[in-house]
C-alpha cells in the first residue's frame, strides 16, 4: 500500500484509511512508536524490514546504548547505512563480535541474552500467536510464506517479543492458519505455565505496534489497544481486525513523531523511501 505524505498541518479530514495524518505517513508513525517502545532496553534482536529501521531509529534516539543483534551472526552492530537485507556487509564492519549462527542462536538467543526480539507476521491472533508459514492448507497452500527463519526460537527464547505490522482484516484474524511462533497460546495463564514448565526464558509478546495504534497484552493474555495513533479512528481499528478488540479505558493518543525523528527516518535511515514510501 502506498502512502502520500501530507503537508502539515492536516485536519482530521486527511485521516482516512488510505491517507496520512499531518506531515507524516502512517508507516513513519508506526516506526517511531516501535522505536520509542525500545526505551530502556539493552539487547535487541533485529528482524528484516520494518524492525530494522525501528531499531536503528531507537539507537539514534531513545536508546543509544542498544546492542543490535542480527541473526546472521552479529552482536553489537553499528550499521553505517540501513541494510536492505539483514545480512548486509555494513552490519559486520565495526561490530563488537561476529559469530557463527550456531553460537548466535545457541549462546546468545537460547542462553537468554536477548531482551527484545522483533517479529513481523502475516497473521496474528488476539493472543499474539503468529503465522509466517502458509495461508491456507499446508500441503497445498493458497500462499506460501517465508516460514520461520529465526522467528520460532525468538518467540520462545527472547525475554520479550515486540511485533510490528500493518493492520488488516486478513492479518489480524480470529484463527491463524499455521502457528509458526507461539505467543500467549490460548491465554496468559496457560502460556505462563507452559513457558515455566518447559524452562523457556522468554515471557512472550509484550507490544504490538501497527499503523493504527499500540497494543499491550492484558492479564488474560489478550491484545488490548492502549494508544491510538493521531489520525486513526476506532472504527478503522475494528474494521481491520477479525475479532472485537479490547480497548483500554484510558485510551491514549500516540504523540506524533517529532521533527527530529522524521528527519532521521527521511534523511539518514531511509532516504530512498524503501520502507516508508
Amino acid at each position: 500500500m502506498s502512502e502520500q505524505r501530507m503537508p502539515a498541518p492536516a485536519g482530521p479530514a486527511s485521516a482516512s484509511a488510505s491517507g496520512s495524518a499531518g506531515g507524516f505517513s502512517r508507516t513513519e508513525m508506526m516506526i517511531v512508536a516501535a522505536a520509542r517502545a525500545l526505551a530502556g532496553q539493552r539487547v535487541c534482536f533485529v528482524g528484516v524490514g520494518l524492525p530494522n529501521i525501528a531499531v536503528n531509529l531507537a539507537k539514534r534516539t531513545v536508546s543509544p546504548d542498544l546492542e543490535l543483534v542480527y541473526e546472521a551472526g552479529v552482536f553489537g552492530a553499528e550499521p553505517a547505512r540501513l541494510p536492505l537485507s539483514i545480512g548486509d556487509p555494513t552490519i559486520v564492519t565495526g561490530a563488537t563480535a561476529v559469530t557463527s549462527m550456531l553460537e548466535l542462536f545457541g549462546y546468545y538467543l537460547q542462553r537468554g541474552l536477548i531482551d527484545v526480539g522483533f517479529l513481523g507476521a502475516a497473521q496474528i491472533d488476539r493472543f499474539g500467536n503468529i503465522n509466517t508459514t502458509v495461508i491456507g492448507d499446508y500441503a497445498h497452500p493458497k500462499t506460501r510464506l517465508p516460514g520461520s527463519g529465526g522467528a520460532c526460537e525468538i518467540a520462545i527464547n527472547a525475554r520479550q517479543v515486540f511485533v510490528i505490522m500493518r493492520q488488516s482484516a486478513r492479518s489480524f484474524v480470529e484463527r491463524i492458519d499455521f502457528r509458526t511462533s507461539p505467543g500467549n497460546l490460548g491465554g496468559a495463564e496457560n502460556a505462563a505455565r507452559i513457558r515455566r514448565e518447559q524452562g523457556w526464558l522468554g515471557s512472550g509478546p509484550s507490544v504490538v505496534v501497527t499503523d493504527l495504534g499500540v497494543y499491550h497484552f492484558d492479564a488474560s493474555g489478550e491484545m488490548r489497544l492502549d494508544s491510538l495513533h493521531p489520525g486513526a479512528s476506532l472504527d478503522e481499528v475494528r474494521a481491520t481486525m477479525g475479532w472485537d478488540p479490547r480497548i483500554a479505558d484510558d485510551l491514549a493518543t500516540t504523540p506524533a513523531p517529532t521533527a527530529d525523528e522524521l528527519r532521521l527516518i527521511r534523511e539518514e535511515l531511509d532516504p530512498d523511501g524503501m520502507y516508508t514510501k
Binding site: 539483514i86 510464506l145 516460514g147
Partner: peptide, 24 residues
Amino acid sequence: FSWLGNPGVGGLNAIRRVTEGPGA
C-alpha cells in the same frame, strides 16, 4: 530450508510456482 524469501524484497517466485495450489 528454514526461510524461503528474497530478503528485503519479497517472495521466491519460481519456487512459489511449484509449491502453491493443487499443482504443487
